[in-house]
Design a binder for these strands. Structure first.
Lengths: 339, 339
DNA sequence: GACTGGCACTCGCTACAGTCGAGTGCCAGA
DNA sequence: TCTGGCACTCGACTGTAGCGAGTGCCAGTC
């Protein structure tokens, strides 16, 4: 298709203007604000072509042009380069994240930071258990028939489960159980534990077997199989900015979607190494979110342990958002590496 | 003031109709839908009085009447009786809450249940640490200079903190520390621990003193002083129901307020024993929430350990909401008592 | 052949006038 | 004290007209 350089320039100008003003942009305004070196009439011709190709459209006959999802896609892929962060933003990130004591704290701060910097909805996944290794397993007797199983992962996550034993168990046996479990499972990736747990149950001496069996059930069922994912969300108030002009009218479907953990996981959980994923409008798989764009990426210390990202109107500042999301992910990764 | 029974009946009818239809209610419609036994003209006179007293108002001259905050207040205090739950609702509550394994799970299910039943925003506070007792303190060595302090409270809450020791510490000493801490603090209310912790530091033998000191700092600072409160939220999508007719226009201030933990705590955290608190419109202390009403109550096993409630438009079904909030709180209390 | 200026046309937006009707306040009478 | 009747108010809706931003097309120029 004949998309020469000038037509691409026009598209870029349209996207930039529309993102900035949120109003359909016309040929005249375009040549005034950008140095295109041609007249409005020429731009109009280019626009006609761009419209024919599906990159822009007219809300109504006598209005200016607005980018389509396809237009944004082209813009993101070929017309924009990632905006470097301002020093102020860098400082904000550092200031925000130092002093975090806890994994909870880190995630909490990160999600708020992201929401604040991008002025959009931010989502941060806790380090996934599926990508974690066991650092330590602790068994705390609550009563003679109840144990609290505390798992501490190398990613900093701590999970606890109540284990209801079939029969009372003496304190010494708990010590034995703890030792055995840690010897066998310590350091292994959670995903690799099932056969080891199985072996444990078989190896354990008979009087500990019932306890070990329930313990292993809890371990496998609640920590490994449905490896519980946790997610933090912030900045929903940003959806109600822009006077409801974005999201044609109702926030409801969006808020609804954001309350579903499964949905959020789909948004930011599926992370491939070191790419930033941008899903624009209809590219989104979740119906309720087809009016929105999602920028997401993975983070972690060296390797990826979870995802984070933001969600906003398709009309968003992609270069800036992508830069921010990446930068925050990198900082968080470094932070986690220090522990 | 001359608010005889019929005038009160009229007010009740107005509130009920307005809540149901969300439209200003006129004198004619009123006599048609309720058996008031008088003519529209009479009702109009009563309305004039009610308006003069500030219980209702006219959005514009030629419109029907709408209750004011004061009108709702009178309605709640004197004109309505708590609606008994339908069997279906009872069943829903039970079905929703059985099978919860975890405190996290209980809170999570509760908040969703509340949001679903009331069709409003639901808020549930985790059992407050300030109202909890220490059941067990566990010290897990992460490295030679790092301990994970895990506190298990009688309310089911589990909190962990990383303790960075000033010097490496052998495993035996950790055992000693654990034993001492548990002997001294086990079973005591968190609020009562500071002098005990102080005593611990003084009593401990010299070589353990540095470790005990940092440990006590973490304990006091992060668990006792700023006793971290956790809160769960659900149903924000319900704010966007009613086509933005409630909340005159923008959801933004409300969503903003709901992102502040401090605000949420203020909403539902200040619980007096066994009362259900209803704050209507302007009675609310938080500016951003002056368009809304909040129904909240305490819950717990026998004694109150935390608060829960819902937030919605002033135009809400108070009798129904109050009944639901109370019922859910009672069920949750029972559930906690079983553990 | 690519660009430009000019021109007619489209169509959403705003303002304005007119009508309708729900709802009110008031008053005289039962 | 209540009621029916009546004049009045005022928002909602409708239709019309003018404005203006923006377009598409075309003939002319480099």
């Amino acid at each position: 298709m004949g998309l020469d350089d000038r037509k691409l320039d026009v598209l870029r100008a349209i996207v930039e203007d529309y993102v900035a003003t949120q109003e359909p942009v016309g040929s005249k305004a375009l040549v005034e604000r950008h140095q295109l070196g041609v007249s409005p009439a020429t731009v109009r011709n280019d626009m006609a072509v761009l419209e024919e190709e599906g990159y822009i459209r007219q809300p109504h006959t006598s209005a200016g042009r607005v980018p389509t999802d396809r237009g944004y896609r082209l813009f993101v892929d070929r017309l924009s380069r990632v905006k470097p962060l301002t020093p102020a933003e860098r400082r904000a990130i550092e200031r925000f994240l130092v002093g975090a004591v806890d994994l909870d704290d880190v995630v909490h701060r990160t999600v708020r930071l992201l929401a604040q910097l991008t002025r959009q909805v931010a989502v941060v996944q806790y380090p996934s258990l599926a990508r974690s290794s066991v650092r330590h397993l602790e068994l705390v007797p609550i009563s003679t028939t109840r144990l609290m199983l505390v798992m501490i992962a190398d990613t900093g996550r701590v999970e606890q489960r109540l284990v209801e034993l079939p029969a009372p168990i003496p304190a010494d046996d708990v010590t034995d159980l703890r030792r055995m479990v840690n010897e066998k499972l310590g350091g292994t990736k959670l995903a690799d534990t099932p056969p080891l747990v199985q072996a444990l149950v078989e190896e354990v001496n008979p009087e500990l077997r019932p306890a070990m069996t329930t313990l292993s059930t809890v371990l496998l069922e609640t920590l490994v199989e449905r490896h519980e994912e946790r997610i933090a969300l912030a900045g929903t108030a940003n959806l109600a900015r822009g006077g409801l002009l974005d999201f044609q009218g109702s926030l409801r479907p969006i808020l609804e979607a954001l309350e579903e953990e499964v949905v959020l996981l789909k948004l930011i959980g599926e992370v491939e190494p070191s790419t930033t994923r941008v899903r624009i409008g209809d590219e989104n798989e979740i119906d309720n979110l087809r009016g929105t764009s999602v920028v997401s990426t993975g983070y972690g210390p060296g390797r990826i342990v979870g995802g984070l990202g933001v969600l906003g109107p398709t009309r968003m500042d992609y270069p800036g958002t992508i830069a921010t999301v990446r930068a925050v992910a990198r900082y968080v990764g470094e932070l986690l590496a220090q522990n």
